[in-house]
């Protein structure tokens, strides 16, 4: 309730736009802003209102507020009776109500009408996912990727599903595919290194180290990558399989990273006392 206090409609519109463009989920807040501020001011929004209605209906479905979603979708249907995009919103509503068979019927007609409609194909995969049929969803995703190879979202989704199944090497492959598209994205390097670190083993740890370093190189303030580098280097340092040369390098990195983390922590909080304690408990034995 804090959020919507004294919120003007133009401010609310800007907040929702920001969330929409930055892919923030925040469904509860979206619905709250909609109900308290924007619902009565919808006519003031001009052509923006349609995207906004779409955003609100998805958010409402996400918090199981079928009533809110239904009224938004209803407005959209009146405006665009033949739009496939609105139709996939109807499908999402059916999904939220767990009427999966009806949803699938709709999706099949959409795909028949428009072969290249990726949203409908993605929704079909989501239905499998919602039914917790992860292996089937993975199979469908690989089929999808054979047709639409450059769809980065799907590579990412496939990566997440492989992780859910514990298939780390395949998840790592998906990540590799992703940073071929975005070599300058530090988060992808960090994520890839996280996966490799989870896999364990000397070779993977070496590779994880270089990707953590790459992430730090691209963004010096990536704390997670710094901690990742600290942990991988500590493991390499303590492992019996590493050569003495590499051990020396690893311990150098440990010293450097600890110093850097302390410095960043100091900048943020002003003291490092508690960090020392926390660092001690970080060790994986």
């Amino acid at each position: 309730m804090e959020l919507t206090k004294n919120l003007s409609w133009s401010k609310a519109r800007d907040i929702l736009k920001d969330w929409r463009e930055n892919n923030q989920r925040r469904s509860v807040e979206v619905v709250e802003i909609w109900e308290t501020v924007l619902a009565s001011k919808i006519h003031k929004l001009g052509d923006d209102r349609f995207v906004l209605l779409e955003q609100v209906s998805i958010a409402a479905l996400d918090c199981n507020r079928i009533d809110v979603a239904a009224s938004c979708i209803h407005t959209l249907i009146k405006e665009f009776p033949n739009s496939l995009r609105v139709r996939s919103l109807i499908v999402m509503k059916l999904e939220a109500q767990e009427r999966y068979d009806e949803a699938l019927d709709h999706l099949d007609t959409i795909i028949k009408l428009d072969e290249s409609n990726t949203t409908a194909r993605k929704r079909k995969i989501c239905i499998l996912k919602a039914k917790n049929k992860i292996p089937e969803a993975i199979k469908e995703l690989t089929e999808y990727l054979k047709k639409f190879m450059t769809d980065q979202e799907t590579w990412q989704e496939l990566c997440d599903l492989y992780l859910a199944e514990g298939d780390y090497s395949k998840a790592a492959f998906c990540m590799e595919e992703l940073f071929l598209h975005h070599p300058h994205n530090h988060l992808l390097h960090q994520r890839y290194a996280d996966i490799l670190y989870t896999m364990g083993g000397p070779e993977q740890l070496e590779l994880a180290t270089s990707h953590y370093l790459m992430a730090i190189n691209l963004n010096a303030k990536n704390i997670r990558a710094l901690y990742g580098l600290l942990l991988t280097s500590q493991q390499l340092q303590n492992s019996a399989k590493t050569t003495s040369n590499k051990k020396k390098e690893a311990s150098k990195r440990v010293v450097w990273v600890s110093k850097r983390l302390k410095q960043l922590y100091q900048e943020a909080t002003g003291n490092t006392e508690s960090l020392n304690e926390l660092m001690g408990s970080l060790q994986v034995s």
Binding site: N23, S27, N64, E153, L187
Partner: peptide, 16 residues
């Protein structure tokens, strides 16, 4: 925010 993909939202999660 990067991992959040609107096209792959599912609605049958515990939040509902």
């Amino acid at each position: 925010t990067l991992r959040n993909i609107p096209s792959y939202y599912i609605f049958s999660h515990r939040g509902r």
